[in-house]
Design a protein around this nucleic acid. Sequence first.
DNA 1: AAGTCCTTGTCGCTTAGGCGACAAAAGCGC
DNA 2: GCGCTTTTGTCGCCTAAGCGACAAGGACTT
Lengths: 201, 201
Amino acid sequence: MLLEQEEKKVDPRIKRTRQLLQQALMDLMKEKSFQSITVQDIAERATVNRVTFYAHFEDKYALLEHTIREMIRQQLRSQVPEDAPFSTESLTRLILTVCEFLAEMSRRCPLPHTQFEPLMEKQIKTELYEVLRAWLAKPSSAKSSHRPTPEQAAMVTSWAIYGAVLQWSQQERREPAREFVKQVLPLILAGLQLVDKVPVP
Amino acid sequence: MLLEQEEKKVDPRIKRTRQLLQQALMDLMKEKSFQSITVQDIAERATVNRVTFYAHFEDKYALLEHTIREMIRQQLRSQVPEDAPFSTESLTRLILTVCEFLAEMSRRCPLPHTQFEPLMEKQIKTELYEVLRAWLAKPSSAKSSHRPTPEQAAMVTSWAIYGAVLQWSQQERREPAREFVKQVLPLILAGLQLVDKVPVP
DNA sequence: AAGTCCTTGTCGCTTAGGCGACAAAAGCGC
DNA sequence: GCGCTTTTGTCGCCTAAGCGACAAGGACTT
C-alpha cells in the first residue's frame, strides 16, 4: 500500500549506467581483489565517466552493496516467481538458493570475502525478509492477537534461514545442500506455522 | 598522411551507443530475419531511445552496413595485427579469415542473405584494401615507373581475393578452406610480386 | 473504400553523462 | 620526516540521449 509505483519511470540512462557499473565491478572482481580495484577501473570498464560514478554511488563500497543486493534478488526471484503462493516447496527452493549463493561466493572469494560478509548478510536477509513478508501478508487480513504479525514472522525466519545456511556453508565437510535443507526445514517451518493461515503440511 | 588523427576524441557516449546498437542488431539477427526487425526492436534491445537511433544511422540498412564492416574489420585485425609485416603467411591468414567469415555468414543466413551480399562484398573488399594498402605502402618509397602503385595492387588484390573466396563459398561441395587457400595463393601472389619490394617466397 | 494498427522520420524541451580542472587525501620509495 | 605519484571527491560548462508528440506512409482487415 505504502510502496506501490516503484521502478516505473526511471530514466533508462540511469538504469543502464547502474547496470554497466555493477557488471563492471563483477567482471573486475573475477580478476583482482576488491581492495585493489579503483573507481577509475570500474568507470573505465563500464564505459562511463568517473564523475558519473559518483553521481550514482557514494564510493565503491556502496556499489558493492548494491551489486550484491541485485545478485541475490535476481537469483531469489528467478527461483521464486515474485508472487508465488507460499508452500513448503517454495520455501525449500528459497533456502536452497541461499545455499547456492553463499557456496558460490565462498568458492569465488576464498579468504578476502570475510570483510564483506556482514554486508552480504545484511543484503541477503533483507531480500529474504521481503519475499517472506510478501508471502505471509497475503492471506492475513483477520487480526488475531496472541499470534505473531507477518512482519515479525518474516524477520525471525529470515534470520533463522541465514543463520542455518551460514553454519552449513562454513563447514569444511558439508553435506549436499538438498540434504541439509530437508533437515532444517522443520525448524524453520515451526515458527511460520504460528502465523495465521499458514498451511500445515 | 592525409588521414592521421582518426578515432581520437570521439565522445565515449557515441562509441557506446553505436556499440550497443550494433550488438543489438547482431543479437536480433540470430532470432529473426533482418526484414522483420524494426528500428524499435533494435533500440529497445540496445537500451537506447528510438530517436537516438536516427541520430546515428539513416535507417536499419545503414546500421547493418556499419555492423558488417565492424565485424569483418575486427576479425581481420585479430588475425593480422594491424601493422604486421607482409608475408605469404600473413596473406594466407588474411584469405583464410575471409573464407571463415563468408562461410559463417552463409551458414547463419542460408537464403535471406542474398540481398545483402552486395553490401557484404563492398565492406569486405574495402577492409581488405585497407590492410593490403598498409602492407604495400610501407617499403615503397622509391618511385619506379612501369610498376603498379601500391594502391593499384591493393585494389586488384582485394577484388581477386574476394572473387576467389566467393566462388569457393558458393560451391556446395567445397574443399577445406586451407586446401583452397593453398591453391589460389600463387594466383594472388603473382600480381603482388609486380609491386616494388614485395618479397618473392 | 474506409477503417485500424504499426512503423518511420522529425520536431523542441528536459535531463543525464562527459570533460577539464582543481584541492584534498592516501600510498610509497627513500 | 619529505617529495612523488595515484586516487578521491567536487566544481561548471557543454553535449548526447530521452521523451512526448506529431505527420506521413504502409499493411492488413472488413
